[in-house]
Amino acid sequence: MIIKNIRQLKNIFFSLVFKNLINAYNLFPLPKYWGTGKRSAADGTKWDMYEQNLLSEYHIRYGGYGGIGYYHVSDLYIALFSRFIPCGVWEGVYILDEFIKNDSNIQPNIVHADTQGQNTTIFGLSFLLGIDLMPRIRNWKKLDLCKPDKSIKCKHIDEIFSDYIDFDIIKTYLPDMLRIVLSIKMGRIAPSTILKKLGSYSRQNKLYQAFKELGRAIRTIFLLKYISDIDLRTTIQEATNKNESFNGFIKWLFFGGEGIIAENNRDEQRKIIKYNHLVANCVIFYNVYHMSKILQELIIKGYKIDENILSSLSPYITSHINRFGEYKINKNRNTPSLNYDIDIFKSTE
């Protein structure tokens, strides 16, 4: 790979630091009590900017001027992916980007989201990419449950199905859809780019209709599972709650300038979001390491630590962090070796 400029070199260096930090975090045993690493949740939060900023936009739902920091947070609490997007952009188009741009050892295959993930086109593309899309559902009256065929009658529950799937258009355009998926897998195009294009296509476009029909079929299957499985609803709620907790945690760490992004340059705004994300992951790493050491000390003292205690913990702890303290850099200090195999579990039996 040929490095063309300093900016590209900085991006490569940042990506390596970011990946190595996540990989090192994954070596600790404590996060394994919080999740499996196979799930992540996607959500955005508004960052304030000055109204006079040329790139600032007014957000109708959040209120006020600013931009959106969009984050993918693993069920292990560590954030895997982030980006800065304008307020006027539909957040849902970025749900699948994590699975292409995340090259760490934590590789989820299930993604949760809020109502931004209910779109049928996203369901269709995620299915072809081998990703299970499981968003949190609301506004049920706007969602259709579809039958495989118009002639099929479902005993006792036929009235809940308001439409049927056109499988002929899916069969016709499946080769074209698979070409798009292969292009995404090869890194030639991002899922967000495809979703933007599909979202802007005319409803008469056949490829758009094929993705939509496939998505309607997959979404119907998911909605039926969502209705019948209380454990699934609980898991989705827990995953999205972790993402919302991360949003509060990352904003707490961004304390300078009253939490307002003052830059009037899109690259600088993206850089602030990325660096803030990196700082948050560093603090999470630090918290997990010291939490593990404290748990080991408690075990040595005779305390009983079981799975229920460990699973109820969270690395989003801030009470011990002095954001406004005096920090000195000692260049002669050697980096201490980290022990990832810390014994943190002692059964009560």
Rank of each mutant, 00 (worst) to 15 (best):
Tyr50Ile: 10
Ile321Ala: 04
Gly259Tyr: 11
His290Gly: 04
Asp168Phe: 03
Ser74Pro: 02
Pro31Ser: 01
Leu278Glu: 00
Lys38Gln: 11
Ala239Gln: 04
Asn102His: 02
Arg233Asn: 04
Asp43His: 06
Phe324Ser: 14
Ile342Lys: 05
Asp163Phe: 10
Arg61Cys: 11
Ile299Gln: 01
Val181Leu: 04
Lys38Asp: 11
Ile160Asp: 11
Ser40Ala: 14
Lys147Cys: 07
Ile68Glu: 01
Asp114Met: 01
Thr120Val: 15
Gly37Glu: 01
Ser74Trp: 01
Asn20Gly: 09
Leu128Asp: 08
Asp176Arg: 11
Arg203Thr: 13
Gln204Ile: 13
Glu297Asn: 10
Arg188Val: 11
Tyr275Glu: 11
Glu263Gln: 08
Leu295Tyr: 00
Trp47Asn: 05
Pro31His: 01
Tyr226His: 02
Arg61Asn: 14
Arg333Thr: 13
Tyr62Arg: 13
Cys87Glu: 04
Asn332Glu: 12
Phe99Gly: 00
Arg233Met: 05
Ser292Ile: 04
Ser192Arg: 02
Asn23Ser: 04
Ser200Trp: 14
Leu253Arg: 03
Ile294Thr: 13
Cys154Trp: 15
Tyr77Asn: 10
Pro29Met: 12
Ile160Arg: 12
Lys197Ile: 15
Leu125Lys: 01
Asp43Asn: 06
Glu57Ile: 09
Lys185Gln: 13
Asp168Trp: 05
Asn241Leu: 15
Phe255Asp: 13
Val73Lys: 00
Ser104His: 04
Ile106Cys: 02
Ser40Asn: 11
Tyr94Asn: 03
Ser162Arg: 13
Asn102Glu: 01
Thr115Val: 15
Ile85Arg: 00
Leu133Pro: 01
Gln118Glu: 04
Lys225Arg: 15
His112Ile: 10
Ile6Met: 10
Lys171Thr: 13
Lys46Asp: 12
Pro336His: 07
Asp166Ile: 10
Gly88Phe: 09
Thr234Tyr: 14
Ile250Ser: 06
Ile95Pro: 00
Lys10Ile: 09
His290Val: 07
Tyr62Val: 06
Lys274Met: 14
Thr235Lys: 15
Lys242Cys: 08
Asp149Trp: 09
Leu128Met: 12
Phe84Asn: 03
Leu54Pro: 13
Asn139Pro: 10
Leu295Trp: 01
Asn334His: 15
Leu295Ser: 00
Gln269Phe: 11
Gly199Asn: 08
Gly259His: 08
Lys293Ala: 08
Glu307Arg: 10
Tyr65Phe: 12
Ser151Lys: 13
Ile3Gln: 03
Phe211Ile: 08
Leu96Arg: 01
Gly35Val: 00
Ser202Lys: 11
Gly88His: 09
Lys225Pro: 09
Asn53Cys: 09
Cys282Tyr: 12
Phe123Trp: 06
Tyr58Glu: 05
Gly92Phe: 00
Thr45Gly: 05
Arg270Gly: 10
Leu207His: 06
Ser82Ala: 12
Thr45Arg: 05
Glu91Tyr: 02
Asn102Ala: 07
Asn11Tyr: 08
Ser151Met: 12
Asp306Thr: 05
Val73Ser: 04
Leu253Asp: 07
Thr193Phe: 06
Lys271Ala: 08
Gln52Ile: 14
Thr318Leu: 12
Phe211Lys: 02
Pro29Trp: 11
Leu298Arg: 15
Ile60Thr: 10
Asn265Phe: 06
Arg233Cys: 05
Pro135Asp: 03
Thr234Arg: 15
Met177Gln: 05
Ala79Met: 03
Phe84Asp: 03
His112Val: 12
Ile78Ser: 00
Lys242Asp: 07
His72Ile: 09
Phe167Leu: 08
Asn330Ile: 06
Ser200Tyr: 15
